[in-house]
């Protein structure tokens, strides 16, 4: 399989990243909780989640980080290198929610020999924004 790369030379500020959607199932929530080694009951035990005041089990924070990294390198290709991700957290993700991921290049710049972009990303569920913030990605150049 061949992998495309997004080159720093070819992107500009305000460029939008392609939108992705994923239906978050109960299986997604449990599989990501266990893959992130987070055994907190609210991420797999319905009754425990309700005792904590939630309507159902919900996605854990480490998985939000995992989804954001996946979203960014799906766009950049494997030569894109994640340097920094800052996440503000909002609405909870419950089973059955459609998680919609979007992003836009906020800044394009260099730092020493690194060719960087800051991507403002937005992950939303029907209830509202789930996670948003900025990620710095180093991109390859054509030079």
């Amino acid at each position: 399989m061949s992998w495309k790369s997004i080159y720093w030379d070819d992107v500009g500020e305000d460029d939008e990243l392609p939108t992705q959607t994923r239906e978050i199932t109960r299986t997604t929530i449990v599989a990501t909780a266990i893959a992130t080694r987070d055994f907190t009951p609210v991420h797999h035990d319905h009754e425990a989640a309700q005792r904590e005041g939630a309507t159902d089990i919900f996605l854990n924070i480490l998985s939000t980080g995992g989804f954001i990294g996946k979203y960014l390198t799906d766009w950049s290709g494997p030569e894109g290198e994640l340097k920094k991700i800052t996440i503000r957290l909002g609405a909870t993700v419950f089973p059955g929610d459609i998680l919609t991921s979007g992003g836009k290049i906020a800044k394009k710049y260099t730092d020493g020999d690194k060719h960087l972009v800051d991507v403002d990303f937005n992950f939303t569920v029907p209830m509202g924004p789930h996670a948003w913030g900025t990620a710095t990605v180093a991109l390859p150049t054509k030079g």
Binding site: M1, W3, S63, G69, K70, D74, P78
Partner: peptide, 9 residues
């Protein structure tokens, strides 16, 4: 698998 992340790295 859980994240559906296919990055070949």
């Amino acid at each position: 698998e859980a994240m559906e992340d296919g990055n070949p790295l």
